[in-house]
């Protein structure tokens, strides 16, 4: 196994392009190292992107923030601007693993690992985040929900990587929230995850909403019916009930070691409702 730690994006792409064998990109490494150890992957080349300056930074851009692929959770959580703009996304990232894992794990890594249970992804999807995908042919921006195509599978081409994620600006009476269900308080993979972002008008009516669910299907899903249940309402009890119903109906989970089908379907609705309540409260504070 060859290890390279390029200092520029171009050099990284070149390495990817010239390697015929199995390649793994090393950002925080909290998934890759576990896979290496278990023998799940045996890469020929590991490309560590943490020495690429641009990938280590968070930059303000058009009222939103661009977050480099190598920015770890602890750093994101310490960034006042992002915390204020997208508190739900930050809390989702901070739910990934322990304090120790936060010192390494990255949002982009979480995205590209393509687990349906990834905590940060439903929050990013709800926030309308885009991923900047860069490869030999240049860069393109795509919605984050287009990255994962199935468990462990991505739409990234050969020699492509996600350089950064962009969290857009948002309106005044708006906010977001993410909740996940785990049997313990920490150190678990989401059994169900729900990310919600909402925008209210001056009269307290929801004008825009995005609802995303994790761990209830082969990939994180954007649930339009759930958003529809909120839009045009004051997010009252009836709307919350409709939201919960829509979230539960959209869930197509499996039985596994982490939860049952019935449990996940029910809890998808419970969490969507609870996350919506938090998002509404946050939108009022602003």
């Amino acid at each position: 196994m060859r290890f390279e730690a390029p200092t520029s994006l171009n050099a990284a792409i070149e390495l990817l392009e010239n390697e015929a064998g199995v390649v793994r990109i090393l950002a925080g490494g909290t998934d890759v190292l576990v896979q290496l150890r278990s023998g799940q992957v045996e890469p020929d080349l590991i490309v560590d992107i943490k020495r690429i300056e641009a990938m280590q930074t968070i930059t303000e851009e058009d009222g939103g923030f661009r977050i480099g692929a190598a920015v770890c959770g602890a750093e994101l959580g310490g960034h006042a601007g992002v915390c204020k703009l997208w508190p739900g996304v930050v809390e989702a990232v901070e739910l990934i693993g322990s304090t120790q894992v936060q010192g390494r794990a990255t949002m982009v890594g979480n995205l590209c690992n393509a687990s349906p249970a990834a905590d940060s992804v439903p929050a990013m999807v709800a926030a309308g985040a885009t991923a900047r995908v860069t490869g030999p042919e240049g860069s393109r921006d795509i919605p984050v929900e287009k990255i994962a195509t199935g468990p462990g599978q991505t739409s990234l081409g050969r020699a492509e990587l996600v350089e950064s994620v962009y969290l857009p600006a948002r309106g005044v009476h708006s906010s977001d929230a993410y909740l996940r269900f785990i049997p313990r308080t920490e150190m678990d993979i989401a059994v169900v995850g729900a990310g919600i972002s909402i925008e209210m008008d001056g009269n307290g009516i929801c004008t825009h909403a995005r609802v995303a669910l994790g761990a209830v299907g082969p990939r994180v899903m954007l649930v339009e019916d759930a958003a529809t249940a909120l839009i045009g309402t004051s997010i009252d009890e009836a709307a919350l009930e409709a939201l919960a119903q829509a979230a539960s109906s959209a869930a197509t989970p499996i039985d596994d070691k982490r939860g049952t089908v019935d449990f996940r379907i029910k809890v998808a609705g419970v969490l969507a409702r609870r996350a919506a309540i938090i998002a509404v409260q946050r939108s009022r504070v602003d």
């Binding site: 049997p183 313990r184 308080t185 920490e186 150190m187 678990d188 993979i189 070691k257 982490r258």
Partner: peptide
């Protein structure tokens, strides 16, 4: 340990 789920301090 991830999926065997022993109690952690915050539990």
């Amino acid at each position: 340990f991830l999926d065997y789920r022993m109690p952690v301090a915050s539990d």
